[in-house]
């Protein structure tokens, strides 16, 4: 099947699928970043139980396979009388996992700050919050640009999980299996989806590099 024929027949669905993938990616990334920050604050807090709980969170969700988590959310949770919509299940999975990685990146970003700078901030009379604002946060954020762009790409790839549940409209991966069951020669569908994913990943990577070059901290 040629690209034109395929797009005439399934063009609208493709747009919808692309939109689903982008929407899921953006939503997941924002939620994952927010959750990742909360988890990180817990991990660096002086309160032991919070540290332990947040460490546990990270270990669980950076090690659980996406498919296993999605299956638990979709099939197991209802046994606990928690029934989520398919979309919510996918969004939950594609948020919980990247959040763990987000926290890992933030932690290593902060670890690039030499302890001496923190002592210097203290010796200048900065309070804890002033130190965080002037010294810790700006450096952690700036050294997290590249990891965060990688995370955004990884999050997008994770959203392919959406193809494993009946979603309407489905995502860029789901539409490939949809088209292959409704038409012959779906390889073209595969190629289009692959190109869209890859192009998006490359663009994200380039923008990330651009920002990183602007804000990178010389050491």
């Amino acid at each position: 099947m040629s690209i034109t024929a395929l797009l005439t027949q399934f063009g609208d669905r493709y747009l919808a699928a692309l939109w689903t993938t982008y929407k899921l990616t953006a939503l997941s990334f924002i939620l994952a970043a927010a959750l990742g920050i909360v988890i990180t604050v817990m991990r660096i807090s002086p309160i032991r139980p919070l540290r332990i709980a947040a460490d546990l969170y990270v270990q669980v969700f950076r090690n659980i396979p996406g498919a296993a988590l999605l299956i638990l959310l979709v099939y197991a949770l209802p046994y606990l009388q928690v029934v989520l919509s398919y979309f919510t299940c996918v969004l939950t999975a594609t948020t919980l996992i990247p959040a763990a990685f987000c926290s890992e990146y933030l932690m290593s970003g902060m670890n690039t700050i030499s302890p001496g700078q923190i002592e210097a901030a203290r010796s200048l009379g900065m309070t804890f919050l002033q130190m965080i604002k002037n010294v810790v946060l700006p450096q952690a954020v700036r050294s997290s640009v590249l990891p965060m762009t990688n995370l955004l790409v990884a999050t997008m790839l994770t959203t392919a999980l959406a193809s494993q549940v009946p979603l309407s409209p489905t995502d860029l991966t789901g539409i490939v299996s949809y088209i292959s069951t409704h038409a012959v020669g779906g390889v073209t569908a595969f190629l289009i989806s692959a190109a869209l994913y890859c192009a998006t990943a490359v663009v994200i990577g380039q923008v990330g590099n651009l920002i990183d070059r602007k804000v990178r901290i010389l050491r």
Partner: peptide, 19 residues
């Protein structure tokens, strides 16, 4: 913090804010 602000400190490893 207030008292510290009245006493300057210079470290062995400079400790300038890298960013």
């Amino acid at each position: 913090a207030a008292l510290r602000s009245q006493i300057g400190m210079v470290f062995q490893s400079f400790n300038l804010f890298a960013h």
